[in-house]
């Protein structure tokens, strides 16, 4: 995405817009609560001040970004993002039903694919080593309450 607006700084524009959206969202939801007075600050008092600051700052960053040139954001590494963050979510989903014996190799095996330099041997070996390590250290050594075999595997 090189210079979508010709001039202007895409990174500043995106960051500013993001901050404005966040500021407005907090400001909006803060209205569910009582603002109070300075003497007796309600639950919405502090967040509202911050939300206004956030929105103003975001606007300034956005406007400055429109005015002066800057570097492009660059391509997003969708593959790496998907293969690092996805397996993390999957770990959360599988750790109870399946336990470490399956959740850890899934996490390691899938996330290893995020690297462009992945090798089959490296992937299998690290999945094996890290699973054994996790079971030995986290479950047995430190006694963390994380199941080795999940409830679907008879744990």
């Amino acid at each position: 995405m090189p210079g979508t607006l010709g001039r202007g700084s895409p990174r500043d524009i995106a960051a500013g817009a993001l901050f404005v959206v966040i500021g407005c969202a907090f400001g909006w939801f803060a209205q569910d609560h009582d603002l109070g007075t300075p003497n007796r600050m309600g639950p919405a008092f502090f967040p509202t001040i911050l939300a206004v600051m956030m929105t103003v700052l975001g606007t300034v960053i956005l406007v400055q970004g429109l005015r002066r040139p800057g570097e492009p954001i660059g391509r997003w590494p969708w593959r790496a993002m998907l293969l690092v963050l996805g397996p993390g979510i999957l770990f959360g989903l599988t750790i109870r039903p399946l336990g470490m014996i399956a959740a850890v190799p899934l996490l390691v095996g899938l996330s290893a694919l995020a690297s462009r330099q992945v090798t089959a041997v490296g992937l299998i070996l690290s999945a094996l080593v890290l699973t054994l390590f996790s079971i030995a250290v986290f479950a047995h050594g430190l006694g963390l309450p994380i199941p080795v075999f999940g409830r679907l595997l008879g744990g």
Partner: peptide, 19 residues
């Protein structure tokens, strides 16, 4: 190599935060 390292970091982070 980093390709062997970051899956381990992920495991530590996931198990750590879960614990």
């Amino acid at each position: 190599p980093y390709r062997l390292l970051y899956p381990a970091i992920l495991v530590f982070c996931c198990v750590g935060v879960l614990s």
